[in-house]
Amino acid sequence: MRRWWWWGAGILGLVVLAAGPTGALAASADHEGQVVVYTAAQSTIVQAIGPMFEKKTGIKVQFVEGGTGEVLKRAQAEKANPLGDVFWALAAEPLAANADLLEPYTVADDAKITAIYKKGMAGGRVQPNNVTPMVIVYNKKLVSEADAPKSWKALAEPKWKDKIAYAAADKSGSSYTILATLLTVFGDNNTGWKVVEDIMKNAKILPSSSRVPKGVADGEYHAGLTYEDAAMRQVAGGAPVGVIYPQDGTSVPPDGNALIKGAKRPKAARIFLDYKGFAPLSEIKAVAYDMAWAGKNYAAFVKKWQEIIVRVK
């Protein structure tokens, strides 16, 4: 039913793609011989993909790694003379918010991508990659399955005071997505913001999204708000972590790829973008999460969130 470990699936997809008869790839022997890929993907994945892509296409691939924020900041600073060719596996919302850095491109597999994942993607400039549902994680040693928070709303109860972890919304992209998801579920109004404030009263604010599942796995926190991939890696590693897809609904935003505007090696870049497979999606109860709306309201929502933090901390 649910995909457990989407990176695993992603690699599998790639292996299948690489092995299959992909005419589009074979036809384009006409390329620049190398490509520079700016990526926020996990190092493990990056190391696996490089050699596979080189072997298949004969194109030498050079990765520049960093968090989504760092990679985008870097590309913004280099705008006058871009050094990268492709963005790969960055958080899609911030990528879409930087539409001026992107060149529109339609990937070979475009027809297979479900329409809802193309919404809010900067008019086709961003290609959806894998999806990352927002979830609740809890520590199975500290919290029984019966007591575990089954919904976002449950995290607002006073019994979770100082026991849950949340990454700062003004720092982490996925954390901002959770904030916007809460406002989608409970409304961008007094009711919705009251729920946010109550959750923040209970939460310890951490500086990066990877700290939340790690802290819960280590028993530093009872539960946390995070994204599926990070949570599942803990589960796969055998940590005492339970994952909950909130009953009141969650968002399922994709990661994104894009062609960098002014890329020096556009042909190789397009081959790289075509190379990525897009894993089919699972059946999580998704709310109608509007990425364009979330992006537009970023400054206002973060400011309100910061005011809450000053009030409750």
């Binding site: 968090g67 989504t68 924020g69 760092e70 985008l72 900041k73 958080a91 919302e93 911030p94 918010a97 930087n98 700062a168 003004d170 720092k171 982490s172 992209g173 901002y176 992006g295 970023y298 400054a299 973060v302």
Partner: peptide, 11 residues
């Protein structure tokens, strides 16, 4: 740092 390296473009 948060203001500067912000995934959403920052301020």
């Amino acid at each position: 740092y948060s203001l500067f390296v912000n995934e959403m473009g920052g301020n």
